[in-house]
Amino acid sequence: ETQAGIKEEIRRQEFLLNSLHRDLQGGIKDLSKEERLWEVQRILTALKRKLR
C-alpha cells in the first residue's frame, strides 16, 4: 500500500461518510446506514493511522 493509494482510499471513504451523514440528516432512521457510518469511520481512522 502506497501513500498515494492510502490517500485515495481516504478520499473515497470520506466521500461515503459525507453521503451517509447527508442521508441520515434527512431525518430517516436507518439502522443499517448508521452501522455503515460507524464502520466507515473506523476504516478512516485506521487509514489515517497508516499515514503517520
Score class of each variant (00 low, 15 high):
residue 38 W to G: 07
residue 50 K to P: 00
residue 13 Q to H: 14
residue 2 T to D: 09
residue 15 F to Y: 10
residue 36 R to E: 09
residue 12 R to T: 03
residue 8 E to N: 06
residue 35 E to W: 09
residue 27 G to C: 06
residue 43 I to E: 06
residue 19 S to M: 14
residue 41 Q to T: 09
residue 16 L to A: 02
residue 40 V to C: 05
residue 51 L to S: 01
residue 20 L to D: 00
residue 28 I to E: 10
residue 12 R to S: 03
residue 13 Q to S: 02
residue 31 L to T: 15
residue 42 R to M: 06
residue 11 R to Y: 05
residue 46 A to H: 07
residue 15 F to V: 13
residue 20 L to V: 01
residue 32 S to T: 09
residue 46 A to V: 08
residue 10 I to E: 01
residue 6 I to E: 01
residue 44 L to H: 00
residue 4 A to N: 07
residue 33 K to V: 13
residue 16 L to P: 01
residue 4 A to L: 08
residue 5 G to S: 12
residue 13 Q to A: 13
residue 41 Q to H: 08
residue 40 V to H: 03
residue 47 L to Y: 00
residue 40 V to Y: 03
residue 43 I to W: 03
residue 6 I to D: 01
residue 49 R to G: 04
residue 29 K to A: 10
residue 2 T to F: 11
residue 2 T to N: 08
residue 51 L to W: 03
residue 37 L to T: 02
residue 9 E to F: 05
residue 6 I to M: 03
residue 3 Q to S: 07
residue 40 V to L: 07
residue 22 R to L: 10
residue 25 Q to R: 09
residue 18 N to T: 08
residue 35 E to K: 14
residue 49 R to V: 09
residue 41 Q to D: 03
residue 24 L to W: 03
residue 37 L to A: 04
residue 43 I to N: 07
residue 36 R to Y: 06
residue 25 Q to T: 10
residue 10 I to M: 02
residue 6 I to F: 02
residue 1 E to H: 10
residue 8 E to Y: 05
residue 31 L to Y: 09
residue 38 W to S: 09
residue 4 A to E: 13
residue 24 L to C: 04
residue 48 K to I: 11
residue 29 K to I: 13
residue 20 L to I: 07
residue 25 Q to M: 13
residue 37 L to S: 08
residue 24 L to H: 03
residue 34 E to S: 09
residue 17 L to K: 04
residue 24 L to K: 02
residue 40 V to W: 02
residue 21 H to L: 15
residue 46 A to I: 11
residue 49 R to N: 11
residue 43 I to F: 09
residue 17 L to D: 01
residue 16 L to C: 10
residue 17 L to P: 01
residue 1 E to F: 10
residue 6 I to S: 01
residue 6 I to Y: 02
residue 28 I to T: 09
residue 15 F to L: 14
residue 30 D to Y: 02
residue 30 D to K: 02
residue 13 Q to L: 15
residue 7 K to D: 03
residue 22 R to D: 06
residue 26 G to N: 13
residue 9 E to G: 02
residue 11 R to F: 04
residue 38 W to N: 12
residue 26 G to H: 09
residue 11 R to P: 01
residue 18 N to W: 12
residue 52 R to T: 11
residue 51 L to D: 01
residue 36 R to T: 06
residue 39 E to S: 03
residue 3 Q to Y: 11
residue 25 Q to W: 06
residue 23 D to L: 10
residue 42 R to D: 03
residue 14 E to C: 15
residue 1 E to V: 09
residue 16 L to Y: 06
residue 15 F to S: 15
residue 46 A to L: 08
residue 10 I to S: 01
residue 41 Q to Y: 14
residue 45 T to E: 14
residue 29 K to R: 12
residue 8 E to S: 07
residue 45 T to C: 13
residue 22 R to W: 04
residue 27 G to F: 15
residue 5 G to T: 12
residue 2 T to R: 08
residue 31 L to D: 10
residue 42 R to W: 05
residue 34 E to K: 11
residue 35 E to D: 05
residue 2 T to K: 07
residue 19 S to C: 14
residue 36 R to N: 04
residue 17 L to W: 11
residue 35 E to H: 11
residue 46 A to W: 09
residue 22 R to P: 02
residue 24 L to V: 04
residue 27 G to V: 05
residue 14 E to M: 12
residue 38 W to Y: 11
residue 44 L to M: 02
residue 47 L to T: 00
residue 19 S to R: 11
residue 43 I to S: 05
residue 48 K to C: 08
residue 19 S to T: 09
residue 41 Q to M: 14
residue 28 I to A: 08
residue 42 R to H: 04
residue 23 D to A: 12
residue 45 T to A: 14
residue 49 R to K: 11
residue 39 E to P: 00
residue 8 E to R: 11
residue 27 G to S: 07
residue 21 H to Q: 14
residue 9 E to L: 12
residue 18 N to K: 13
residue 44 L to W: 00
residue 13 Q to E: 02
residue 3 Q to H: 11
residue 24 L to Y: 06
residue 36 R to W: 05
residue 45 T to Y: 08
residue 20 L to C: 09
residue 29 K to V: 11
residue 17 L to C: 09
residue 52 R to V: 11
residue 43 I to G: 02
residue 9 E to P: 02
residue 39 E to G: 03
residue 49 R to T: 07
residue 18 N to C: 15
residue 37 L to K: 03
residue 40 V to M: 04
residue 28 I to W: 04
residue 15 F to M: 15
residue 30 D to M: 03
residue 34 E to G: 04
residue 21 H to K: 15
residue 15 F to Q: 14
residue 1 E to K: 07
residue 14 E to L: 13
residue 9 E to D: 05
residue 38 W to D: 10
residue 11 R to M: 08
residue 20 L to W: 01
residue 26 G to I: 08
residue 41 Q to K: 11
residue 17 L to F: 08
residue 4 A to W: 09
residue 29 K to D: 08
residue 13 Q to C: 15
residue 11 R to L: 07
residue 4 A to I: 12
residue 43 I to A: 06
residue 26 G to M: 10
residue 15 F to H: 15
residue 10 I to W: 01
residue 47 L to D: 00
residue 5 G to K: 14
residue 51 L to C: 03
residue 37 L to R: 02
residue 20 L to M: 03
residue 25 Q to P: 03
residue 41 Q to P: 00
residue 32 S to M: 12
residue 12 R to E: 03
residue 50 K to S: 07
residue 42 R to K: 10
residue 32 S to Y: 11
residue 10 I to K: 01
residue 22 R to M: 10
residue 32 S to H: 12
residue 35 E to S: 09
residue 30 D to A: 03
residue 28 I to M: 08
residue 46 A to C: 14
residue 9 E to N: 03
residue 32 S to N: 12
residue 36 R to S: 07
residue 28 I to G: 09
residue 29 K to W: 15
residue 52 R to E: 13
residue 23 D to I: 07
residue 46 A to K: 06
residue 52 R to D: 11
residue 15 F to I: 15
residue 44 L to E: 00
residue 43 I to V: 08
residue 20 L to Y: 02
residue 22 R to H: 09
residue 39 E to Q: 08
residue 51 L to Q: 01
residue 35 E to L: 11
residue 37 L to Y: 14
residue 11 R to H: 03
residue 27 G to N: 08
residue 18 N to R: 14
residue 40 V to E: 02
residue 24 L to E: 03
residue 31 L to W: 07
residue 19 S to V: 10
residue 36 R to A: 13
residue 12 R to I: 07
residue 11 R to W: 04
residue 41 Q to L: 15
residue 23 D to S: 07
residue 33 K to Q: 07
residue 33 K to E: 02
residue 13 Q to K: 05
residue 28 I to Q: 09
residue 38 W to T: 09
residue 16 L to S: 01
residue 2 T to G: 06
residue 45 T to W: 11
residue 40 V to P: 00
residue 10 I to N: 01
residue 25 Q to G: 05
residue 51 L to A: 02
residue 24 L to P: 03
residue 41 Q to W: 15
residue 24 L to D: 02
residue 37 L to W: 06
residue 8 E to Q: 08
residue 4 A to K: 09
residue 45 T to K: 11
residue 7 K to A: 11
residue 20 L to E: 00
residue 36 R to M: 13
residue 16 L to V: 06
residue 52 R to A: 13
residue 21 H to S: 11
residue 27 G to T: 08
residue 49 R to D: 12
residue 24 L to R: 02
residue 7 K to F: 07
residue 15 F to W: 09
residue 29 K to G: 08
residue 50 K to G: 02
residue 27 G to D: 08
residue 35 E to C: 13
residue 27 G to R: 02
residue 3 Q to T: 12
residue 16 L to T: 02
residue 49 R to S: 11
residue 6 I to H: 01
residue 9 E to A: 11
residue 19 S to P: 00
residue 42 R to E: 06
residue 8 E to W: 05
residue 47 L to C: 01
residue 16 L to E: 06
residue 20 L to P: 00
residue 32 S to F: 11
residue 20 L to G: 00
residue 5 G to H: 12
residue 34 E to T: 11
residue 15 F to P: 01
residue 44 L to R: 00
residue 36 R to V: 07
residue 19 S to G: 05
residue 46 A to Q: 09
residue 48 K to P: 00
residue 23 D to F: 09
residue 33 K to W: 12
residue 18 N to H: 12
residue 48 K to W: 11
residue 32 S to G: 10
residue 2 T to Y: 10
residue 4 A to D: 09
residue 51 L to I: 03
residue 18 N to M: 14
residue 26 G to Y: 10
residue 17 L to T: 01
residue 4 A to H: 09
residue 31 L to Q: 13
residue 7 K to P: 02
residue 44 L to V: 04
residue 38 W to M: 14
residue 2 T to P: 05
residue 16 L to R: 02
residue 15 F to R: 14
residue 2 T to V: 09
residue 19 S to A: 13
